[in-house]
Amino acid sequence: MADNTTSSAPMTRAERRLQKRMKRFDNPWMNPKLIWGVCLLLGIVGLGLLGRLLWNLDLVFTGSAPLKLPPVGFENLRRQEGVWDYPLGTDGSGRDLLALIVMGAPNSLWVGLLASLIGMSTGIILGFTAGFVGGRTDDVIRVLSDVMITIPPLLILVVFQAAYGDVSLAMMSLLIAGFLWQSPTRLIRAQVLSMRESGYVQMARLSGASTSHIMFREMLPNLVPYLFGSFIANVTTAIVTAVGLEVLGLGPQRIPTLGRTIYEAINAGALIQNLWWWWGIPTVLLAVMFIGLLMINLGLDEVSNPRLRRLS
């Protein structure tokens, strides 16, 4: 944007707006994409929290409500109208959809965050170890991450869950995390290798800083935007994998999840019976979750890559 600043002619409206927006971009963390993304995710967390306080969660049990009622303001094929007792309608086994999503939506997000956090921590440790220790250790970690990055997590997890049946949310997160450490490991290893030779690290070494000081105080802060980006991308992958398992009928069997609700809807022929609220509401919530994560990721890209901070 250097070419604007030298012109002495009065600025057009577009230019003024541009300048104003560029000022707002001075703090890269305050970009609209990031804020929107965070708001969407907070909305889902808020739904879970408020719902738990305000809504009757006993309606999540089978048979606690009439079957296949539509949301308020709609009519189902049996000419029943939605009632305010079950504002989002009910499913084929008499569960209130609002109660289902209040319980289920935070679960999906929780699996994603937990799995990504575990994967990330493993990746940070392995990446730094590989970059710093070098030699045999580096070879093993590098080859292992090269190998594991090509294996689709869903397929191994299908085998696992088909063999074990029911799993808890935490167990599922742990299993998914087993496939999420590779890309942070590779990213950090590459960065550590290039940073090791940089001036400030040499300086820290010469002044007698300990290895852990160099790793965590000198190098890690530079990696934060990348790590955030990688973290969010992994949250998305984890949720996609978890939902995939649930839609195949695997995953936790006794806890309501959005994926399992969709699985039950498809199996009950909700598409043909036009029970759109049954599968549609979980689908929309998941979509909101993914869109929020994407926005955060795009926002973080702008933080770490200033070249993207242009207006088009």
Binding site: T236, V240, V243, G244, L286, F290, L293
Partner: peptide, 9 residues
């Protein structure tokens, strides 16, 4: 915006 959604949805 739709690109983050998995194809199943």
């Amino acid at each position: 915006v739709f690109t983050s959604i998995p194809p199943i949805l």
